[in-house]
Design a protein around this nucleic acid. Structure first.
Lengths: 114, 114
DNA sequence: TATATATTCAACTATATGGTTGAACATTTA
DNA sequence: TAAATGTTCAACCATATAGTTGAATATATA
């Protein structure tokens, strides 16, 4: 089943992972499992607030999820949205191959007609 | 062979495809094969200059290439760089799975020790 | 209750980005 | 050679983004 890929969602996803810090945060959460905001921030030469903002961007496009436990927030990676990026890339490749196929058939026909 | 993925290259690639117009241009070039700048621009409700700038961004990260023939420039898609994005996504997934594996083994050990 | 800890909110700054317009450049054609 | 065509360059504008700092909010602990 080919699902409909909203351009807006794709734009948000690509923009989200186009930032090195956010990619790094996502990797860290995949490696370490659920982490708190302060713990994540401790690895970066950047204010806690900056990290908090990055996490919100990741959360907004569902690349991470959050569960609040008292005053601490637990963040965890959620890779399920990644398939939307993969689907777009696969689509692109198949569009490319379809044209090459058409081209190959055209050349074949030309040769037959010579 | 796992090649080294430069963060800067990744950032540029993701930023490049995070724009809807640029994604659309890339798709069009995959579908139609080599096109001129004006021809591409004719499909968009946007100035020729804007499209020209988008093409330069695509060109800078090698998602398209250009060959000049007199006054006309022929653009064509080049999907070879796409694998860098795919490699990063694959890496992320494998990092995720490695942790889940470790976790599963841990639980197994815990159960054995009960 | 007072204080410390975990996090976000708000306001601000600097820079990057996507778009515009008008001029310039290069090449083709009349 | 003059005019038309294809493209880029340069300057500008509005908005978005990544970072900062300081205050606010919520919860835990002494």
């Amino acid at each position: 089943m080919v699902e409909h890929l909203s351009e807006e969602e794709l734009t948000d996803l690509f923009k989200c992972v186009s930032d090195e810090t956010r990619r790094s945060l996502l990797v860290k959460l995949c490696q370490e499992g659920p982490c708190r905001v302060t713990e994540l921030a401790s690895h970066y030469d950047m204010s806690l607030n900056a990290i908090s903002k990055h996490l919100k961007v990741l959360e907004k496009c569902s690349l991470i999820s959050r569960s609040t436990e008292g005053r601490t927030h637990w963040l965890k990676a959620n890779l399920s949205e990644i398939h939307k990026i993969e689907a777009w890339l696969d689509g692109l490749r198949s569009i490319w191959e379809i044209r090459l196929d058409r081209l190959a058939k055209l050349i074949e026909t030309e040769e037959r007609d010579d």
